[in-house]
Design a protein around this nucleic acid. Sequence first.
DNA 1: AACCATAGGCACTTTTTAGTACCTACCATC
DNA 2: GATGGTAGGTACTAAAAAGTGCCTATGGTT
Lengths: 108, 108
Amino acid sequence: MAYNIPVEATLDVIGGKWKVVIMCHLIKGEKRTSELKRLMPGITQKMLTQQLRELESDGVVNRTVFEQVPPKVVYSLTEYGWSLRPILDAMCAWGEGHIDLTSEKAVQ
Amino acid sequence: MAYNIPVEATLDVIGGKWKVVIMCHLIKGEKRTSELKRLMPGITQKMLTQQLRELESDGVVNRTVFEQVPPKVVYSLTEYGWSLRPILDAMCAWGEGHIDLTSEKAVQ
DNA sequence: AACCATAGGCACTTTTTAGTACCTACCATC
DNA sequence: GATGGTAGGTACTAAAAAGTGCCTATGGTT
């Protein structure tokens, strides 16, 4: 996969509708599948699983399965995933600072 | 538009396949349409125009038209667009630092 | 026996996103 | 008079992303 500009490599990993949101939740600590679902009311089970699988195969998140009934699976950021933290922090900070302006714009 | 988490506001503005790439080029200075096309060999005329229109209506880029023949249109980041710079810088830096690892992974 | 919760698989459909092809207008040059 | 270069527009199609509904397994509760 050749990139015309390095930032495309970043987009390959964090691109998509839900990955950044998932990672922003995982920054605050490991989460079970059901917790993530509660934190993201708009996501479907399928998309959550799919995005987590992709993040896992990209080495960004760890998936830990506890062999018990009912099943328990916990997701957390890997060290590689933590290297994305500056990006996630910048995105979260910008969102917090500009969410009001965005709403105003929507009203105009 | 209600967000479950502020970072979704950020994704609304910079989400999409090309917007971050376009903005990364505009960071280095204003560009004409044809320059952007040359810098992004993979983008089609239609997508370039479409993404620029969206960035413009989000207040992130300026579109300056010079009334001459042949037409000349120049795009640049607005002040609001510059506020996204920490995100763009972090994404570019991560891409530069991890592009090799990504290629290795693709080879495995 | 029926039902719950968990974590997900799978087939199918819909929606969104992106690509192709062809169109405009202007003036200059060949 | 045809062609080139610029900056698009538009209709149609293809591909990717996302959503829906129904399925599994297990053991405990009602």
